[in-house]
Design a binder for these strands. Structure first.
Ligand SMILES: [Mn+2]
Ligand SMILES: [Mn+2]
Ligand SMILES: [Mn+2]
Ligand SMILES: [Mn+2]
Lengths: 218, 218
DNA sequence: ATATATTTTTAGACTTATCTAAATATATAT
DNA sequence: ATATATATTTAGATAAGTCTAAAAATATAT
């Protein structure tokens, strides 16, 4: 039996440590969990005790195979629910995350299998993030950030790095969504801002935007 | 802020005390919550403190208007999710309750409003229980138990009193579901068993079944 | 009316997850 | 190499929800 809190820590270790294999610092984990380092230490010990995490004092934490399995399953549930909310319940992509944070902890194998089928076995969530299949495999599409895109080439938007409400609304306000095509017009060396052309009009975006928007060549 | 545990106690008080207005014994509440009377006492105090419950020592507990609002909202969510699971995700009526027990605690007004609309504003759950509308109103249809039905009259099954897996599977095995029509053929005075006719065939059911199946005249 | 049984509450302990403050280990700078 | 800074762990408290055992109140029986 695994608690909701344990699940959330495991998920955080997975995300911080590149799929849970790299070692994660106690402070980084505490920061991600909006808690104190002492609390993180307590939980790390508990996860190690339960064989979800590898831990040596002062040496950071990583996930065991069991821990990774748990993490992937929660991520799968989270992203499937996000698809459901957008596709079936008229949520926008900036409204789904908080609800999915709750829904991802519902325990029922049949529920998630049926939801997957009901949605037509989606491979990506509303933010372009891949949805692991039942066996835990991610479909990885190669993508690059707008910041590293090349002038003169046409790309399609395939994801976001930052899924914050503010960023997603910024994209909405500028009519950028998954599938939107854009050409890189100019990259300003001074402040790394980027001029792009989409749907005829030109738009200037900051380096921050550039780093948080994922593209692929079309 | 209200915890999951508080919500479950409030729901139990509501169900035990006929919509929360009648007074509920500490022992009955503990029994319903599968816990000890001392724990129930602690929670009753807490609910009274938060103005969800009326409580005088040794005199039992009932819900305040606030408490009733909370209870009705949870019941609304529970039953809407049950409809979703049956209508959209191929769950059978004996599979939905445990999952709905989890889903009913998800907090998002938009989620429940949109789910309601997505399902076509259903008025009853898969067990025939009424779903309160957004304002908390129940549509009450008059129904009677099979045990109190009259010989020679034709009825339609509209609900169950006992939603246990065993009872629901018993009904499945005997091809009885919501909407099934049946005529009362004979009521046995000795053990109160009942002979009914449905779809041409005759079936003998016990008094227990009679008390747990709800009908209305057609 | 008094004794007995039942119900309910209280007292004190335990678990999980959190916190603050202090101690200890590791990393960095001179 | 030693001092200083940073990161991590430990110690001790707190709050929520639970438990057992004992005390107190209420209900029932003779
Ligand atoms: Mn999300
Ligand atoms: Mn997402
Ligand atoms: Mn139910
Ligand atoms: Mn139901």
């Amino acid at each position: 039996m695994i608690t909701l809190t344990e699940e959330n820590y495991i998920k955080a270790i997975f995300h911080l440590g590149k799929q849970g294999s790299e070692t994660v610092n106690t402070n980084a984990l505490a920061e991600a969990m909006s808690t104190k380092a002492s609390s993180a230490t307590d939980m790390i010990k508990k996860l190690a005790e339960k064989n979800y995490a590898n831990y040596k004092k002062y040496q950071g934490v990583s996930l065991t195979e069991d821990g990774k399995r748990v993490a992937v399953n929660i991520i799968r549930k989270h992203r499937l629910w996000e698809v459901f909310l957008v596709e079936k319940l008229n949520f926008t992509w900036d409204q789904v995350h908080d609800v999915a944070e709750q829904l991802e902890h519902i325990k029922s194998q049949k529920l998630i299998d049926e939801l997957d089928a009901f949605l037509g076995f989606p491979t990506h969530d509303p933010h372009g993030d891949p949805i692991p299949d039942k066996s835990g495999k991610f479909i990885h599409i190669e993508k690059l950030s707008l910041a590293s895109a090349k002038v003169g080439i046409v790309y399609m938007c395939v994801g976001v790095n930052d899924s914050s409400v503010d960023f997603l609304k910024y994209l909405d306000n500028n009519a950028i969504s998954l599938g939107t095509r854009m050409e890189i017009v100019h990259k300003e060396p001074f402040d790394h801002s980027i001029k792009i052309r989409l749907n005829g009009r030109e738009l200037m975006v900051s380096q921050t935007v550039g780093k948080n928007l994922f593209l692929k060549e079309v």
